[in-house]
Design a protein around this nucleic acid. Structure first.
Lengths: 213, 213, 213, 213
DNA sequence: GATGAATGAGATTTCATTCAT
DNA sequence: GATGAATGAAATCTCATTCAT
């Protein structure tokens, strides 16, 4: 099709695993792990079923490699961001902006839905995700909120642990929505506007009365 | 063998479909639609595979009947609640309380995760869910928020459409969390505390500066 | 085909496993374990592939069940025979007669070839066969030979351990031959005549000079 | 890369087919034809799968080449031996000695087990083996036995045809045993002692009473 | 109505074979 | 000549569905 490749045979050891993983992520996110056939993945990756097995021992293996590969490079970003000094409000704004512009449109955004659906079938992977993604995220968010309280930016009486979930929930909601119901909805969601509304409500909700707009 | 036993309780035959649907919901929520075998459902319902086919034509049929049956009696409650006059803050408080005490612990709470995972595989069902649940919910929430604005309870500059999602997201998050990662987590989530934190942040976030605590 | 069975559906839970095992034995003996397809076994048993899996978890399982089932009822016969008092020559004659008339034409005769070929692939089964069949057989044969020596029927200087193999080898040879090369040979082997020749040579070979014919 | 290295030993290319055949023989004898993967053979031969196909068109081809190659140089030896004049007892002694010291420890010893197992799958090869090995062997053995009878070494009433199998069976038994059950047995078989016991029993069994020891 | 043995289409996985490098 | 990535046909095994009992 592209670039004059006329032979049916390609040899691209370097790229294959990546191509296959990308295809698998799409398929799994669309139909779920069990409902995806290896043929589907192969077709989307532009190879044959057999080729997948050159790189991944089983379908389950493919799934796990996929999740780990997509997540690992993203786990640390949040932690880095949280270290930057300055007002927490600015930090949260940056976080939401990054989310709307870089995370939601990227492939990682497909992972949460997948993990949610398959947590019951892949307990070890669920544990991994819980430990390496959710817990680290929770910890960072709590620290940030506490920093806000200590700096007087936020009310001292907030329930930091549960408010952390309030910060997180709309972010998760966005990616889930996008890859499930939005395609069937008339009006696509405006992620940026949503992020702005979320930030606005949240910051006003957390600030002491004196500092509100 | 013991057919002469007349005192033996007759299995209530009229409940078979209900028992099967309940079993199916559990199974689907745990493992997903495709990964659930009819044998699993049958075993959990305490019947044999063949019996399921007396009441449902196919596995897909079972799934659809299930979703519809669980949702329909719940759709109208929210709409009813919203009609009750009085301060919106009180209304939201009641809503969250109902959620924490009745919805989260009930079987309906399993539906969102299922629908999320299978929206791609069952477009018509997704459309149904979008129309009959999500849209009606959205509409109600928007109306409620607008009522709050009009009554002066909420700031006039809020983005009603997107704030509606901010109200909803943590609710959805709770049920998803409960049936995916919570079983693997050390500390179970305190839904009531979460609801309180959500309400607190939200109301303070929406109120005009003058009315905040 | 037979007995007016007009439906494609038969329900014969009792007989199925036996029918399947019989079919499997034939197929395995003909083509070997690996070269036999489950479809082959199913076709010969008059069922479909799926049915086999109702009774046996895997192909390997089928193989092991088969070997064990065919052997177990046969292991003890030899031991019983050896207990009968009387001249050893008579005992050996009876043994060879039983072999020629009952063992060689029966299904058990297929097992040695199978076990020989698959000993490398199924070490635990090989161990079982070695322990339960070969060793018990060896032990009996040695005891019988020793009895012959003690009774003065046989020369006192024979190497009992190795002569036992000399007794056994032609018996094994017969069944291997019958199910491998004989079908391609012009003249079928006359098992009875072979047994007679074997007995004659053997007894004369073991007797002290004085007792020979 | 290091193509300038002239002192480097060139792999003896002329031996590739031989190396591959040797590897194949080992693999086939261990696991059987069908259960052996070309990868197994390649790995044992120290080449890659593709290389095998430079020398052999198919797996079946490899198998047939193997059998023919191993057998052909061995077929005529027996015939040569049988031509040597002298007492038949001496001839048989030499034969058994050759078997124990040269045949059993060699690669040809792997062939019978293989042929036995695969006779059903490779009828033309079975026919070849029957014609070129078994029949020539049978013929020689019968001639030898007849010579013994004519020379008065053996009783005139022996059933030459079937006694030939009695001579052969223990020889076959040895190699089969060695490559199937012996590895799982506690005590390895002493081939030389076995050969001696066989010869002793056999000669005494065939000799007329007057000539026995 | 209920059962569960049997089916058969379809899934995952393997592996002999090919061919660009 | 040698490689090994890629293929695709065929194998094992699963499971939704049927139907005689």
């Amino acid at each position: 099709m592209s670039e004059g490749a006329t032979t049916k045979w390609q040899r691209r050891k370097e790229d294959r695993p990546g191509e296959i993983l990308a295809a698998a992520l799409d398929c799994f996110a669309e139909r779920g792990f069990a409902a995806t056939r290896m043929d589907d993945v192969a077709a989307r990756a532009g190879v044959t079923k057999g080729t997948i097995y050159l790189y991944f021992k089983t379908k389950e293996d493919l799934f796990k490699a996929l999740v780990r590969r997509e997540l690992l490079p993203n786990i640390e970003r949040l932690e880095e961001m949280a270290k930057v000094p300055g007002p927490v409000a600015v930090l949260l704004e940056r976080l939401l902006d990054l989310w709307a512009t870089h995370v939601v449109p990227s492939r990682v955004a497909l992972i949460p839905k997948l993990m949610l659906a398959e947590a019951g079938n892949f307990p070890d992977l669920a544990k991994f995700y819980l430990d390496e993604v959710i817990n680290r995220g929770r910890t960072v968010l709590r620290a940030v909120l506490r920093r806000g309280v200590e700096a007087g930016e936020f009310r001292p009486d907030i329930d930091v642990d549960h408010v952390a979930y309030c910060v997180l929930a709309p972010l998760v909601f966005t990616v889930l929505w996008r890859h499930s119901f939005e395609p069937h909805d008339d009006r696509p969601m405006d992620v940026t506007a949503f992020a702005r509304a979320h930030l606005d409500t949240l910051l006003n909700g957390l600030r002491p009365a004196a500092r509100r707009k």
